[in-house]
Amino acid sequence: MKGKMLRATKLGVCGDPILGAEGWPVHVTSKGFVSVEYAAEVDDGEEIDQKDANGDSLVYEPARRRIKLYNVTVTAGRVDPELYTLFTGMPVVLDEDGNATGLRITSKVNLDSAVALELWSGTALKKCAAGAVQRPRFGYFLLPQIIDGQIGDFTIENGAASFTLTGKAIENPGWGTGPYDVYLRSTGVEALESPMGDFDLLHLDWTQLPPPAPTCGLTPRPPDGTVAADATDATDMTAEYTATYVPVGPPPPPYTVDWGDGAQTIGPAEAEKVSHEYATPGTYLITVTDTTTGASRFKSFVAPAV
């Protein structure tokens, strides 16, 4: 399985996603990694085997194993200061323009910083229903909380440099269903169907929703809006996008609405609308993309609308 994308989201002390400017989760979306290793740390339990004075079995209880946590190692091929500081809690170094250019590693014990780590991989599964919009499937892996993030050893030499990030993945009910949509179902884009529980360490599944697009540094809030059936179309085959948030920039608004059938429209101004009529029924993935930063958000429309 080839790794496609990872997303690291900053968590608070209770394991809840930290929200930054405009209520957008503080996170990094990157494809600059070489590998992610998940190594289970197992508690083998304790066997009780008590014999009587004659040597016969008196009490026997077999040891019961359980996974305590996952030791996670991310090998990164690109230096991404924001990803490293989210993972480790180490302070980022800024240049005179406020851009992240490096990281300062300290001896302080990191007790407050934690991240959730999502990863998308490629998969060979291709089971498409007849007549449906054909889409690839992706593997989806979620670790709801990684603590004790550290940067591993590295070597400067005549060769490709890589850095390792290590941490301990533990349970985190504070993640709930998460702040993002990660599935594309027949009813549209959705978050996790059930929240991460008190003992859930790892969620792995496949999804037809593509991974988010990579961005430089912290992922900015993408343009946003609502999608509904155009009330003027009696066939319910026309989707109407109403902008609720537009990134700051010179006019026209610097974003696009990809309707999922090959058509694309320049995004409207805030509170304005654009519409698109579909030729055939189906569940369509709509991608709203900031053309300046690359940040994107997925929407969906079921044609005909019901």
Rank of each mutant, 00 (worst) to 15 (best):
K10W: 03
V13I: 09
V13F: 01
G15Y: 09
E22I: 04
E22P: 00
E22R: 13
W24V: 05
V26C: 10
V28H: 09
T29M: 10
S30I: 02
K31W: 01
S35T: 15
S35V: 01
E37N: 14
E41F: 00
V42C: 03
V42R: 12
E46Y: 00
N54L: 12
S57N: 11
R64I: 13
L69C: 11
L69V: 02
T73I: 10
V74S: 03
G77S: 10
T85I: 02
L86T: 02
F87G: 00
G89N: 07
P91M: 08
L94C: 02
L94Q: 11
G98P: 06
A100M: 09
V109F: 07
A114G: 13
A114E: 01
A114Q: 05
A114Y: 04
E118I: 00
L119Y: 02
W120G: 03
W120L: 06
W120M: 07
A124M: 04
L125S: 12
K126Y: 08
K127R: 12
K127Q: 13
A130D: 10
V133R: 13
Q134G: 03
Y140R: 04
F141E: 12
L143P: 01
G152L: 09
D153E: 15
T155N: 14
I156L: 15
I156E: 14
E157A: 14
N158Q: 14
N158E: 12
S162W: 00
T164C: 08
T166K: 15
E171Y: 09
G174K: 05
G176Y: 02
G188V: 06
E193N: 05
S194K: 13
M196V: 15
F199D: 15
L201Q: 07
L204V: 12
D205H: 01
T207A: 08
T215S: 11
G217F: 03
G217W: 04
P220A: 08
P220V: 10
R221W: 03
D224N: 12
G225Q: 08
A229F: 01
D233Y: 06
A234Q: 14
T235K: 13
M237I: 04
A239T: 10
T242D: 00
A243Q: 04
A243P: 07
T244E: 11
V248Y: 05
P250V: 09
Y255M: 04
T256N: 13
V257L: 06
G260Y: 01
G260E: 01
G262P: 03
Q264E: 14
T265Y: 09
P268Y: 02
E270W: 00
E272D: 15
E277Q: 14
G282A: 11
L285K: 06
V288W: 03
R297E: 12
K299W: 01
K299N: 03
K299Y: 10
F301E: 07
